[in-house]
Nucleic acid binder design. Structure first.
Lengths: 258, 258
DNA sequence: TCGGTTAACTTGTATGTACAAGTGCCGATC
DNA sequence: GATCGGCACTTGTACATACAAGTTAACCGA
C-alpha cells in the first residue's frame, strides 16, 4: 500500500528505494547510485536521502558504505504481525485455500495455565475455541484459542467457520498489537490425532502465543499444533545483528496438552 | 564490551543510553530527558543525540516522540548470532554447565540432503559429527553437524569433547557470518531415543541450519534435536514491525531422520 | 607494464539554522 | 470547578556547511 502523498520526504524516498529493490531495478549485489546522484534525481539535500538509506540499512536491505555507495543485499525473509498471527492471512499469502472446522466455542472457567497466561484471576471465565485448520482441504493444524471475556463475547455473534477470527476482531476495533510466541514439540494426543487424521503419539509442532494490546493487556492465549511435515518456522540470523528469536531453557517439564 | 573510546560520538551516546536503560537508570515506561537536556549534558548538538536515539528506536528499545520525549519500552528479547548458533555459549549464558559426548567424527560422502544444503556436488566428502549435548549433565540435545571438507579438516586436530566447535572455528579464522534456521518436530528414532535416555518415538524439537560465510559460501549444515521439555524457541512480534521469523509451508512431507 | 602516489570521488560525522507539528501546562473565563 | 485558548516547550523534518575517513581511478615514474 503506497504511503500517502504528504508523508515526509524521507519516508517516501525509503518507499521508492524499497520498490526499486523489490522490482529488480536495483538487484541484490548491485550498488546503489551515490548520494549526490540521488540528491540530483529527487531534487533534495543529503539529509532526507541519508535518512531513507538509514532505514533501509536498519531493515538489512542494504549494507556497506563509507567511501562507496551501499550494496543491495538478498532479501531477508520476514512476516508482518497479521500474516504471522492469522492462519487465514498466511494461507492466502502462500496461495492456499484456508479452511476451518469449529469443534467448540465455549464460555468456561479458564484452566490454570490460561489464567496465568492471560493475567486473570483464578476461575475467571474465558471464551475458548477449538478449531481444525485446513490448507486446500488438508488438515494442517489444531487451534485452541482463549480470549478474555470482553473480547471473546464478540465471537458469539460471529460464524467461526466463516474465516479469520483475527480479521473479524480487528474489524471490531480490538487492539491486537503484540504477541509472544513459544515454539516447541508435543506428541499428538488421541483428540488431536483424530482431528488431524494421523496416528496418536506423532510429533506436532506447537506454537503457543499470548497476544496483547498496545497498552499491554493480555487478550488472547492460543495453542496451535501443526503437522510438522506441512509447516515449519524459519529464520535467518547474521553476525551483524541480534536475532529476535531466542533459544530458551525451560525449567519445568511439559507434556502433551490434555 | 565497551566500544573503543574513539568510536563516533553517536555510537558512544547510543551505548551510554542503552546502559542507562539496562541498569535501570531509565526504567521501562519512563520518559527520556529531552534532546535539549541531553545536548547540555553531553555538550553536543542535536545531530548525534538524535542519531543515537534513532538507533535505540530501530532496536525497539524506545518508542514515541513528536512533541514529547521518547519512552523506554520493556526489553525485547534477542540473541546474538554466536549465542544462538553455539550451544556452549548459550548454555553458559543461562547459567548452565554445557557438556558434550562425541559419538563420531567421520570423513564421508555427504548424504543427498547434506550435499544439497551445502551446495556440494553429489558424493563430495564432508566431515560429519554426532554429539550429545548436556545441560548440567542432563542430556538436552542431539547434534548432527556436517562441515565442508576445507573447514571440517580443522576438527581432526581438535578435541570435540572439550567444548565449543563454534568458538574453535572462529578462533581458526573461519568466517561464520549468517545462518538460516528451520524449526520443526520429529519423532525420536531408536538412536536418538537411546542417546537422550528417552522412549523411542517421543517428539523432538528439531532445528536445522545452514551456516554461511559473508561471501555466501555454505560451511556448515546441522540438525539439532532437542528435548522439548528442556528447550523451546520464543519470539515477540508487534504490529509495528515485521518479524524475521517466518511461518513456512513445506510441500514435501518429511519424516524422522534415519 | 607495474606499482605507487595523488586527487577526486564517495560516505560518515557533526555543527548550525529554521520551521512544522505535537504536547502539556497555565491562566482566564464561564 | 471545568473548559478553552494561548504560549512555551517538545520532537520531526529539511536545509546548508565543513571536514574526517574510506575508496577508486588515473597518472607518472621506474
Amino acid at each position: 500500500m503506497s504511503i500517502q502523498q504528504n508523508a515526509p520526504l524521507h519516508v517516501r524516498l525509503a518507499e521508492e528505494f524499497m520498490r526499486r529493490i523489490s522490482d529488480g531495478t536495483w538487484p541484490p549485489g548491485s550498488q546503489l547510485p551515490s548520494e549526490a546522484v540521488l540528491c540530483k534525481e529527487f531534487g533534495t539535500s543529503r539529509g532526507p536521502i541519508r535518512q531513507a538509506l538509514a532505514s533501509l540499512r536498519a531493515e538489512g536491505a542494504v549494507t556497506g558504505g563509507r567511501g562507496r555507495p551501499p550494496m543491495v543485499r538478498p532479501a531477508v525473509p520476514s512476516q508482518s504481525f497479521s500474516t504471522f498471527n492469522s492462519f487465514t492471512e498466511w494461507a492466502v499469502g502462500i496461495g492456499k485455500t484456508p479452511g476451518q472446522r469449529t469443534l467448540e466455542v465455549a464460555l468456561r472457567d479458564a484452566r490454570p495455565e490460561v489464567s496465568e497466561a492471560l493475567d486473570l484471576e483464578a476461575g475467571e471465565k474465558v471464551v475458548e475455541l477449538l478449531r481444525v485448520r485446513y490448507l486446500d482441504g488438508v488438515p494442517a493444524m489444531i487451534e485452541r484459542t482463549c480470549f478474555i471475556l470482553e473480547v471473546g463475547r464478540l465471537l458469539f455473534d460471529f460464524d467461526t467457520d466463516s474465516g479469520s477470527i483475527f480479521a473479524f476482531l480487528k474489524g471490531q476495533g480490538v487492539d491486537l498489537y503484540s504477541a509472544r510466541h513459544t515454539i516447541d514439540a508435543v506428541a499428538a494426543n488421541e483428540e488431536d490425532a483424530e482431528l488431524l487424521e494421523q496416528a496418536e503419539g506423532i510429533p506436532l509442532l506447537r506454537e503457543r502465543r499470548v497476544t496483547r494490546s498496545a497498552s499491554g493487556m493480555a487478550i488472547e492465549y492460543s495453542e496451535d499444533c501443526y503437522l510438522p511435515e506441512l509447516t515449519n518456522f524459519t529464520i535467518d540470523n547474521t553476525a551483524e545483528r541480534r536475532a529476535a528469536l531466542v533459544r530458551v531453557h525451560t525449567e519445568e517439564p511439559k507434556g502433551t496438552h490434555d
